[in-house]
Design a protein around this nucleic acid. Structure first.
Lengths: 135, 135
DNA sequence: ACGTATTTGTACGTATGTATC
DNA sequence: AGATACATACGTACAAATACG
């Protein structure tokens, strides 16, 4: 009941802050299920819309994954090391929707873009790590 | 009036697709102002809520910037080349809210994380490009 | 300097659809 | 079949910042 509707900070941001704190503190570890949006709304005396937006914030930050069953803290999967060719340039950006679908990329996960000699390769940032030289 | 409420694809995604096409085609170039949410809603006969969500999609993709005055196509600013130390590992992720504020990072813009010898440096991905070796 | 219109931000409500359990 | 939970979509309303005359 630590949400204050009259506060300067938006209600949904306050809830996002609360949930984020529980995640980063480890109280909600990787894989942990978040309360349902409706439950969050009831517990904190806010609308489901606000609870929903709070979860959306965390999703955009790449902290949580939401599927049909609900939301849960994102787990770190296997990370593949990728060797960067000498002379390549590396950038990052959010994937297009097609790329998201094609590579099974969750919301809030950027892609690493390795440009080498006009050729571009993209790697979902939650599953890849770039290194040079090859370790 | 090319939005079909009965289609499989959500209305707000259809609008996002339309706007995205106008951006990538160049019809809406960098800096171009997008119609106001209310205008988009009226023009396409949808609710402002749906128009709003469409713009939010583009914002999350890093295509547009929204401020109190409205939304406009993101412009490519100066890009700083950063030399990657040999042996460093490179990842990318969405910035925390604090990082966003501290570095003036817009929504939908990831950060490049360069880890070298336990030291981490972060670079907003819309303003930096990593290279190795130094060109 | 001031008020007004515009535009986004926030927050509530309701309703329906769909997938999962 | 029913309950649960998220996705979508509509509506309303007010606040706050900005732009404009």
């Amino acid at each position: 009941v630590s949400i204050d509707p009259t506060a300067d900070r938006a209600v949904y941001r306050q809830l996002a802050d609360l949930l984020r704190a529980r995640i980063t503190s480890g109280e909600l570890g990787p894989g942990s299920r978040l309360p349902a949006e409706g439950a969050l709304a009831q517990e904190h005396g806010i609308s489901r819309d606000s609870a929903r937006k709070a979860v959306a914030v965390l999703r955009a930050e790449g902290l949580v994954i939401t599927d049909r069953a609900g939301s849960h803290v994102r787990e770190q999967g296997e990370v593949t090391a990728v060797a960067v060719p000498a002379g390549a340039t590396i950038t990052a950006r959010m994937p297009t929707e097609q790329e998201r679908r094609a590579h099974g990329i969750a919301e809030g996960v950027p892609v690493l873009v390795v440009a080498d000699d006009g050729e571009e390769a993209i790697y979902p940032a939650d599953r890849h790590r770039l290194t040079y030289p090859p370790s």
